[in-house]
Amino acid sequence: MSGREAILAKVRASLSEGGNDPARRAAIEARMAKPPKGVIPARGKLPDDARVDLFETLASKFAATVERVRSHADVPKAVAAYLRAKNLPAAIRIGADKRLAAMPWDRQKAMEIRNGPSDGDDEAGVSHAFGGIAETGTLVMTSGKDNPSTINFLPEHHIVVLEAADIDGDMESVLAKVRKKFGKGRMPRTLNFITGPSRSGDIEQKIILGAHGPRALHIIMVDG
């Protein structure tokens, strides 16, 4: 008997269940197709403005910095200002995201833009978020050529552009959008939920920012 059959047989024996009970199978298929509505915290159900404000409050509480701009056209300027303020070279790593590509980067004359996944030598990377979750101040990122996963983790500074309109109250609402975009039961290779910059508490339980991932997480929220 293969490992698979042996394990399944043991599980069934312990549960006193047979392998081919169509009613049981139908019940779990139905539950997977339409999971019961769980407990959604009240703070995950706020109306528009309060929801965006809560996202900003919580993301800041968990040590991200949040800057709000009025339009896409303001993003390159904000990125350049952030790099200057942090004393960083005017260079960014960026994927192939069309929304990012359409922004007026040419107005930042000195900015060096490297395209593609990060190779580990980037001080700053810029990504576009799939969405945000207000109840925890969390960014939601999907992998692919538009926003390669390496940009989320390798650069010292991760700058994320987030549309205020893409912020949902709770995690389940974002997951519904993921299903809608990628198809039910299908996923991008990596879905990252990111809440603040990387940190460790492994030495004497003291929290220190900047473990293996970015030391700083800067969110540029586009209100328009």
Partner: peptide, 30 residues
């Protein structure tokens, strides 16, 4: 929602990562 709060007292851990299969055609990393 109960995991990180019970563990470290965080609302969410910094990275919650959902991984599905190998890199897709056209993916530059993974």
């Amino acid at each position: 929602r109960v995991l990180a709060r019970s563990a470290t007292g965080q609302d969410m851990s910094v990275y919650t990562t959902v991984s599905t299969g190998p890199r897709r055609p056209g993916d530059p990393d993974g």
